[in-house]
Design a protein around this nucleic acid. Structure first.
Lengths: 341, 341
DNA sequence: ATTAGCTGCTAATACGCATTAGCAGTCAAG
DNA sequence: CTTGACTGCTAATGCGTATTAGCAGCTAAT
């Protein structure tokens, strides 16, 4: 309620019979400065601080010093929508863990207002409260990214990003090689006629998967079908797959794989007996679908951790720009088998 | 990289040929003050602001004004550990939603350092960077809560809290009535010999469930068994239940219910044929267990939303202390049936 | 002609802290 | 006895903004 007004260093100083400056020095003076304050005085000040429960106002601190041990987290989509929770949660887990380890707090930037599209440089630009920020989301705004790159505000993207007026510091998953490894594995099992089901677009995650895939095609495998998206009744896509003679089908989206597999089963076909199905990525609640798809793992937690560590490096040491791609290990699953002979 | 140093109002002022104060007034002066600045000057200033892309430093703003549109979120346990993610996520969802609607950002307080127990008033006390805070967690520290109540820092607890040196503002779930409703429903189905499986303790959530339960007992139902916890092999608990002659068993923890049900099945008994099982609460991934337990719903998202709204009220209007209990609706489930005759 | 009131601004200050320059006192060396 | 070094502190300043008091110039009313 009413209570005492917020304590300041001046109050402490008065109580301890010293000056405000001394209080500040006791709290966080450089060793050289501290050396000049005798034990006895320090203890007196500390004692007052302890008994009053004083804590420095972080805002004023930041004002004076420029840093405040806060990391901003900007998500281009709300971080906790029911549907997306599973997408962001693992990243946040890793981020929180590392932030805590480094003794930083997290500022979740909620974006401006309701309904409106989220923008980093919205009018308030709250970003600067934090010492630096992590940016994540499926869809990046290129113009904003460019502005970030050109500015001097420390940030790290989660997920690989193409240059935008300069190299973008990021920690991403190595989708290209993750994909490549799975496709090669399929070839090793005898699959030569391959189908690819997934959107085309300029998003890096899409491009990378396709690059990994097409590299193997260039080495001799045969792309017999490329479907952009699976329609509502998955029947058409399935028809196309069957007609193409593909023996292994690669899906960018788990949902597509699920639908096609269901359609196949409904038609008396089975995976992987009749064709193999591989998902290019991992999904948190994949276990909910009754089938364990062969896929590659996206190390989301680790991405969060490393991105956070990188950001701290950039804030504290003005480290050079780094770009890290983490290996996406294959996930065995049950949907990739030998080609039927 | 290098780039321009951060712009300040002084820079804008210089460019527009006015004083810093004028810039500030143009940006957010009271209508009465604004009225005294002619259109022409305002436009000149606005123009410079727009072309330079200036944005006010939120930190300095807060320094001067005392508010920063940030809500702190303190969790007594890490918010995103794999095991707990499901506990906190729904709350955070609601919180984020309402925060965004009210145009506040969220500061997730990670607690100090690794391993150490989390404390609100840890030495850094970063809390005050936010205008107010939400406190959540299973286990509250009474001393800290007391200190919060006695202080003048706005906060709202999620989950009902007993007075601690004064009433605690909170938004909680009405576990007492949620429990009561389920117990009465069981009685209506003929169950008179009831068992209660759950910890005893002073935590409000535990107390409330027990209160709701014991109210019905006081009205004539019979408590034939009270188990504090289910041991590793759930057999003993099951033995006790069978021996007690209970026809309906109430569990505080879903995990206990799952184990007992499994043990029962292993022994040829089945739920709800041989005895009914009711869970006093809801669990996010309850759907993962193959059995849908009869339970009550904890409206976690709504709790998050309302707590956030309440906090904003307290920050902006110094509203009086409110205590809200949200109704916990029963969840039908498959584990409560007529008493076997 | 004096006053009152308005317009269009600016100077000055506060916010709470960190930091630097430097003051007054003591003590040892030269 | 002077100088220099060291001790134990403090005064003063800056960080970028919001806000208040008030100044100078003008007009209209008395």
């Amino acid at each position: 309620m009413a209570g005492t007004k917020r304590l300041t260093q001046r109050d402490i100083a008065k109580l301890a019979g010293v000056s405000q400056a001394t209080v500040s020095l006791v709290l966080n003076g450089a060793p050289t400065a501290l050396a000049r304050i005798p034990q006895e005085t320090r203890e007196r000040v500390q004692h007052v601080i302890r008994t009053t429960g004083y804590v420095a106002d972080p805002i004023a601190r930041r004002m004076a010093k420029g840093l405040n041990r806060i990391l901003g987290v900007f998500t281009y989509e709300p971080a906790f929508p029911s549907e997306q929770a599973d997408f962001f949660t693992p990243f946040l887990l890793g981020i929180e863990e590392e932030a805590q380890a480094q003794n930083y707090d997290l500022l979740l930037l909620t974006g401006a207002g309701v309904g409106r599209e989220r923008k980093i440089f919205a009018d308030g630009n709250r970003l600067r409260i934090a010492d630096g920020c992590l940016v994540l989301g499926r869809e990046f705004d290129r113009a904003e990214l460019r502005r970030l790159v050109l500015g001097d505000y420390p940030f790290v993207a989660i997920g690989r990003r193409e240059d935008a007026g300069g190299p973008v510091p990021y920690v991403g998953g190595d989708y290209a090689n993750g994909t490549r490894a799975l496709v090669e594995k399929a070839r090793a099992l005898g699959h030569e006629k391959l189908a690819y089901v997934g959107p085309s677009g300029s998003a890096e995650s899409i491009v990378d998967r396709w690059r990994g895939f097409s590299e193997v095609i260039a080495e001799g495998a045969e792309l017999v079908l490329h479907v952009n998206e699976v329609g509502r009744p998955a029947g058409e896509a399935l028809d196309a797959i069957v007609a193409s003679g593909a023996t292994a089908v690669f899906f960018v989206e788990l949902a597509d794989a699920v639908r096609v597999e269901a359609a196949a089963r409904a038609r008396g076909l089975s995976v992987p007996e009749d064709f193999s199905a591989i998902v290019l990525g991992s999904h948190v609640r994949a276990e909910r679908s009754h089938m364990q798809f062969t896929a590659f793992d996206i190390p989301r937690e680790e991405m969060g951790r490393q991105a956070t560590a990188m950001l701290v490096r950039r804030i504290e040491g003005a480290a050079p720009i780094e770009q890290i791609l983490l290996t996406c290990e294959p996930v065995e699953g049950q949907t990739l088998a030998n080609k039927r002979t």
